[in-house]
Design a protein around this nucleic acid. Structure first.
Lengths: 228, 228
DNA sequence: AAGTGGTCTAGACCACTTC
DNA sequence: AAGTGGTCTAGACCACTTT
């Protein structure tokens, strides 16, 4: 197998043993010294292998005792939600600057007359409209041109120049609800029809919201795939 | 700060520098030897610090060149979807063994007369029904009692005895759709009303489906929260 | 040739757990 | 006291990249 290196061999062997149930949950695997002797290698190399398995969530060391096998964790799911789809088309419906208004002022914790940049788009797949989305973020005077900001790769990148990078985080809510009037015809649904909607809010490291976006999926395209 | 150890100090310092933009994306951080000299420590300790940052997705080493700072990745979201809610109530509506039928036979890639275990539940929050869910998995004769299997902690654990542990994975689809008739009244919705629905399929490592489940969320409770 | 990261050694000392 | 994991050293040799 993939075992050109000693630490890989050890990690693979142990992963196999755990996987096959040789060491069950809450049981202990051989100690570092035992493994070092078995593979005729140094403790450092053994620890390197064990760190890999620890990072994979298979084992956890306990000081003075040993390495315990963990129970598998199946409840954590993940998925990719990209702002700029690579497949399918994308069309800008509107790019504007406008006052926040009541709802958005509340969501972005600002005043109603605060100026926001709004970007509305229509996403397509196979020539059919698949989703409509909107993004709002604070308009800061003296900032780079809107035109430049529009061509960001991903949602939070818009803020790269304004805020400290890497200190932003995004919260997401997946729910159902009717699309706004301005999107109904484009998506080919009725005004009251409930669609899959994804709401994203970008926060600074101090939990101040700086951006807000929503995406409604057309009835035929309303699926988000995740895995654990 | 949290810097009782040399490797922690190095990792924290570098994380700070990257975070503050001292080293931007695609730029290189100081070499292992440089850092070892700066902190008057060994290369092993420096590498330990750098491995931490690598696992955090901040840097990536390139053989013969150096460590590069990566661009932040905001498009990967994750969330927890637990089978047995700790908060709120849960009531078993039905526990049975029944033939798969056409739809389930297709989903589980088996025959229509294959016997399945079915578990139907009603979940509540604050005394109100919040979701209805169903689970189906293959009924294997001679297996431990159904009664025992019902008290599993998480969905895939049902299969722990039957299949090789840790070689299962779960696919999930989040979409919208009407609840089945048997759930409509319990959830307090109309037959045609579209709800948030989560579909899970558990596969073996050979991608054979062994379990299938769906959960419909009541209109007032239909939100899944994720974060990146 | 010089610098870089990748693997590995053979020790050391410490803190924690068990007997 | 003995065994365990946690931190750390001062080297070594190799493969890769740049000059």
């Amino acid at each position: 197998m993939d075992s050109s290196f000693v630490y890989q061999t050890i990690a693979n062997d142990l992963r196999n043993d755990i996987s096959l149930g040789k060491y069950g949950p809450d049981e202990m695997i051989p100690s570092e010294n035992t493994l070092a002797a078995k593979y005729k290698t140094s403790r450092v190399t053994v620890r390197k292998a064990l760190l890999i398995l620890e990072n994979e969530g298979l084992i956890r060391p306990q000081h003075g005792k040993g390495y315990f096998v963990l129970s598998p964790e199946y409840s954590r799911f993940q998925f990719d939600f990209i702002d700029k789809p690579e497949e399918g088309g994308m069309r800008y419906l509107e790019i504007n600057v406008m006052p926040a208004g009541k709802d958005l002022a509340e969501r972005l914790r600002t005043r109603e007359d605060t100026m926001l940049i709004v970007i509305r788009r229509l996403l397509s797949e196979d020539g059919l409209p698949s989703a409509y989305d909107e993004k709002y973020f604070l308009y800061v005077k003296g900032e780079p041109l809107i035109e430049r900001e529009i061509h960001f790769a991903e949602f939070p990148d818009v803020f790269a120049d304004t805020y400290v990078p890497r200190k932003l985080w995004t919260g997401m809510e997946i729910s159902v609800g009717p699309a706004p009037e301005r999107a109904v015809s484009a998506l080919g649904c009725t005004p009251d029809e409930k669609l899959l909607v994804v709401t994203r809010t970008v926060y600074t490291d101090e939990d101040t919201p700086v951006g807000f976006g929503q995406r409604w999926f057309a009835p035929h395209a309303g699926v988000i795939r995740a895995y654990a």
